[in-house]
Structure formats: structure tokens, C-alpha cells
């Protein structure tokens, strides 16, 4: 395998990059993991993020970023294998177990993750989190969804409006 000049970590130590959260916390991670983000990948390919520079991420706070990176680090090896054609069933089961655990989190973190995954263009994370929220909605009535997603109780006005719409949307309940 011909090693590209920038080095892809196959000559000893893996290349590291620094990411800086909106609240100025610095995270040092392997370039391979950060590159799960399409947005970061471009910067990293351009040689950015190394040395003392760091890549500022003004839309992602440190709590969210550390969660995002946890995902990227876990998924980077499989992604490096190009969707892991040679991944064993055990590897895949382990990733699945990780994913299920990973989204077992507070809703506010979930929504921060959706935004971050979207901004950073991390496809796998986007679909993982969106699916988690979809599963929270699935098979529930609007009132149950409201409670699940933490909507405040409807005002009498809102309740009347909901009832009117319920009549109009009867077909959606068959």
C-alpha cells in the first residue's frame, strides 16, 4: 500500500488533530476518528487541526463534543475498513451494543447530538440518533408523544385545537 504524504497512521503513531468546542475546551483525537465528520474530513485532508492550531467548532459545546467523539472513536476502525467488509459478526454485534447504549441518554443530550451530527455531517450518528427519537414516537398517540418528548401540558386552548385536528386527522389513526 502506498502511503500518502500526509500519512494515514500506518507509519507508527497515528496522526492527531485538535478540536476546540464552543466553550473553548480542547480535544485531541486521531484524525481517522475526526474524519467520520464529512465537514472535518475536508479540513483535515487540507492538513488543518494539527500542531497548536486546532479546529474551532463554535456550534458544539464540550459536553456534546465529547459524546460525539466517543461515537467517532468507537466507529473509526470499522469506517476505515470501508464499511468493514471483513468485520466479524462479533465486531458488528459489539458496535450494535455500543450504539444501543450510546443513545440511552437524556433527551436534551439527544437533541444536541442531532444538531451536532448534522452540522458535522456524521452520517452514521445522524441516523442513529434520528432512529432513537423515531422509536420514542413509534406506536404512540399524540398525547403519549407529548408526554414522552416532554411537551408542557396543553392549555385548554391548545387542547381544543388538538381535538378539532383529531377529527380532521381521523384517517391517520386507522
Amino acid at each position: 500500500m502506498a502511503a500518502p504524504e500526509s500519512g494515514d497512521g500506518n507509519n507508527g503513531a497515528a496522526r492527531m488533530v485538535t478540536l476546540i468546542s464552543s466553550d473553548n475546551t480542547r480535544f485531541e483525537v486521531e484524525a481517522a476518528a475526526a474524519s467520520l465528520s464529512q465537514t472535518l474530513q475536508l479540513t483535515i485532508l487540507d492538513g488543518g487541526g494539527g500542531g497548536g492550531d486546532g479546529i474551532p467548532l463554535p456550534n458544539v459545546d464540550s459536553a456534546t463534543l465529547s459524546k460525539v467523539l466517543e461515537y467517532c472513536i468507537k466507529h473509526a476502525p470499522a469506517a476505515a475498513n470501508g464499511g468493514a467488509p471483513n468485520a466479524t459478526a462479533v465486531d458488528r454485534a459489539e458496535l450494535e451494543r455500543f450504539d444501543n447504549e450510546f443513545v440511552n441518554i437524556d433527551q436534551s443530550v439527544l437533541y444536541s447530538l442531532i444538531m451536532a451530527a448534522h452540522n458535522l455531517e456524521i452520517e452514521g450518528l445522524q441516523s442513529l440518533v434520528a432512529k432513537k427519537v423515531a422509536d420514542m414516537i413509534k406506536g404512540k398517540s399524540p398525547m403519549e408523544i407529548r408526554r414522552t418528548l416532554g411537551f408542557p401540558d396543553p392549555t385548554p386552548e391548545e387542547q381544543a385545537e388538538m381535538n378539532a385536528h383529531m377529527l380532521e386527522y381521523g384517517w391517520a389513526y386507522e
Binding site: F151, A172, E174
Partner: peptide
């Protein structure tokens, strides 16, 4: 992003129910 969530319900009727939220 809401579309990304609702599309994973894989059911237009289920997605339509969220119009009442």
C-alpha cells in the same frame, strides 16, 4: 432534522399523527 426523524417512522400515517402535537 425533524424530517430525518419522522421519515424513520416508515409510515406516513404515523408521521401525520405528529401534526397534532
Amino acid at each position: 432534522l425533524l424530517h430525518g426523524i419522522l421519515v424513520r417512522l416508515r409510515s406516513t400515517a404515523a408521521a401525520a399523527r405528529t401534526s397534532l402535537l
